Amino acid sequence: MKKPVVLDIDAILDDPGTRIVVCCGAGGVGKTTTAAALGLRAAERGRCAVVLTVDPARRLAQSMGLTELDNTPRLVSDNVNGNGGQLFAMMLDMKRTFDEIIEAHADPERARQILSNPFYQSLSSSFAGTQEYMAMEKLGQLRRSDEWDLIIVDTPPSRSALDFLDAPERLGRFLDGRFIRLLTAPAKAGGRSAFRLLNAGFGLVAGAMTKLLGAQVIKDLQTFVSALDAVFGGFRQRAEMTYQLLQAPGTAFVVVAAPERDAMREASYFVERLAEERMPLAGLVVNRVHESPAPALSAARSAAAAEDLESRGEHELTAAVLRLHTGRMQLAAREHREQEHFLSAHPTVPVTRVRAMSEDVHDLTGLRRIGELLSSA
């Protein structure tokens, strides 16, 4: 395999100019663990770090010794290694973040009306793209607060990990859509002219929808969208500011992948998409790489030796160990080929590898070990 450019994790974490690290990658590759390990290592090196997970899985809380995480950063470890570093962690609560925005940008009465609106309750819980947009909002809130030296974001699995890059445009399309404009037009027109406009431009559609959905649903929907200009006007502006923040030199994207075909293909997709969006890519972490303690003994030689022992009925245990070694070497060879494909396509991307652990990471000791492996390349 061509020797790749080495990803220097400690240099990224130690650089005071690095304020945001975004971990992205396919599901099941150890992205959440990697984000937590980076946060712990940064704290051990004297930084005040917060890890924000958008992944609905609760592995982050468990690995940090917490019973649960919520929408507020929780202190995990204080004065780490005696150097003043701190580690905080939180899990994005999509609906709570949406509610906080309403409460912050509306008077109490209007906020009460919106929060109790059935359409808003559905939108804030399940509307496509809401999670990614709220992740942008929360990231922006954390950065504007300036309480942490370093913010590490653990994104959702698979390609949705990059959907938050599209959040401003998606929200803009929603707010500027013809259907929304029709619904808000009567309220903007005011008085009887509003009803004339509704009858002229929206009467047939409203009548059909009223029969289909019911008058109350249409009323709830109109009540909700009438507040869009007053309350949600700053959504796009804040999302675009966060988007620009992600493009700034103080941000580093770390793509996490397992040395498997699908995961490495996803890694290639992420690298190419980040380049298109002019996002600062730090490099690739290849996680759970299998190695052999006896690499000089090839798979072919160990398989032949095992077969010879089995044919003579001798040293059954030794033959079994040789068979295990054969499988391990074959697995390592497959992983080697997948990494080679990636490096051939992206020779300039810095890479670090983390060897497979014998057991799952479930506490700070395990996270600390992962951090050491990440930086040992």
Rank of each mutant, 00 (worst) to 15 (best):
P4A: 02
L7Q: 06
I9H: 07
D10A: 13
G17T: 06
G17Y: 06
I20V: 15
C24M: 09
G27Q: 07
V29I: 13
T33L: 04
T34I: 13
A35S: 12
G39S: 08
E44H: 10
R58L: 03
L69R: 04
V80Q: 00
N83I: 12
L87T: 09
M91F: 03
M94K: 11
A106N: 06
P118W: 05
F119A: 12
L123A: 15
L123I: 14
Q131F: 15
K138A: 05
D146W: 00
W148R: 13
I151W: 02
S158R: 11
R159E: 03
D176T: 09
G177H: 11
F179P: 03
I180P: 03
R181N: 13
L183Q: 05
A185I: 04
A185L: 15
P186E: 00
S193N: 12
L212Y: 09
A215F: 09
V217W: 00
V217Y: 10
Q222W: 06
Q222N: 07
A227R: 00
R238A: 11
Q247D: 01
G250E: 10
A252F: 05
V255S: 00
V255R: 01
A257H: 10
R261P: 01
E272D: 15
R273C: 02
L274T: 08
A275N: 12
A275I: 05
N287H: 10
L309Y: 02
R312V: 01
E314H: 09
L317R: 15
H325G: 01
T326W: 03
E335F: 07
E338L: 08
H346M: 04
R353V: 15
D363V: 11
T365E: 13
